[in-house]
Amino acid sequence: MPLLDVKDLKTYFRTDDGIVHAVDGVSFSVEKGKTLAIVGESGCGKSVTCMTIMGLNAKRNTMTEGQAIFKDRDLLKIDPDELRKIRGNEISMIFQDPMTSLNPVYTIGAQLREAVQLHENVSKQVANSRSVEMLKAVAIPRAETRMDDYPHQFSGGMRQRVMIAMALVNNPDLLIADEPTTALDVTTQAQILKLMNQLQRDFGSAIILVTHDLGVVAETADDVLVMYAAKVVEKGGYEDIFYRPEHPYTWGLLNSLPRLAAEGSDLKPIPGTPPSLLQPPSGCRFHLRCTYAISPCIPEVPELLPVGGESAGDHAVACHLEPEFRRRESHDLLHEVMAEQQT
């Protein structure tokens, strides 16, 4: 049984311009101790999906449907106070911008201790020693003395380590990381990813990793969910997505990765921009930007169906193209990439 099972999740926001369909029927599951990566362009609903699971959207203008079953409880339906007790304890979350995610007027020690004491009735001393231990686990030098420092006395990478420490201090079953490395420079990114991988081995938490960076996915993910315009277009194991991708959008994402080896070859971005979620396009939402689009793509919404053949299992794709054709294209794409890398 999966740790978290999300079924047909829908999140709509009422705005002055109309209803924004930010997440429109998303299903996925996260296995215990595994990492699921959610990828897609900015504004495709990755973050909103996570915020909805955590119950962190503003209540005033949000409408939510579907199920998110976590340990036999539906997170979307349980009492807010019940959900509050799960947040930061059984499921915790880290965010994109470590520079602004910590409260500037409290020491990080105070903020870490708060995370412990919100969920457990322990003394300040106990909370303190657990916080120091956690800071050591995320490799912050001189952890004891740094407890008394304020967030502005830490660099971006160090702050993200503090955020990770704060998220893991109660040993959660699931860590949701919303673009945890996007705001950091490349070397710091690599350190943070390595740290997350290592902590996952040590603590056994499952991770939902939201990112738009396929490089990050390649380094961490067990399973991958590709989202486009509030819907899932493809999902599968890490190998399915990287070696046997079947959706033209996934091809586009892989193709637009800058490759160091291929000198002189230009970046190949996906043409066009993501559609508005106020009035999403009919049929397959990607058809406006898809070079392979055929006539059924415009009126008919493709279903997310399991892929047959050699890559059975959880690999599924939502596309009207002939499976035979998709497999051939995917194969060619992979060859192209390999060839480029060899030259």
Partner: peptide, 22 residues
């Protein structure tokens, strides 16, 4: 709307604490 208020909520702080303390 600050990120650290969202962090406080994500930590599981009750709304009253979020507002008063953070």
């Amino acid at each position: 709307n600050e990120d650290y208020v969202r962090t406080a909520r994500a930590k599981g702080a009750p709304e009253r604490t979020v507002i008063r303390r953070h």
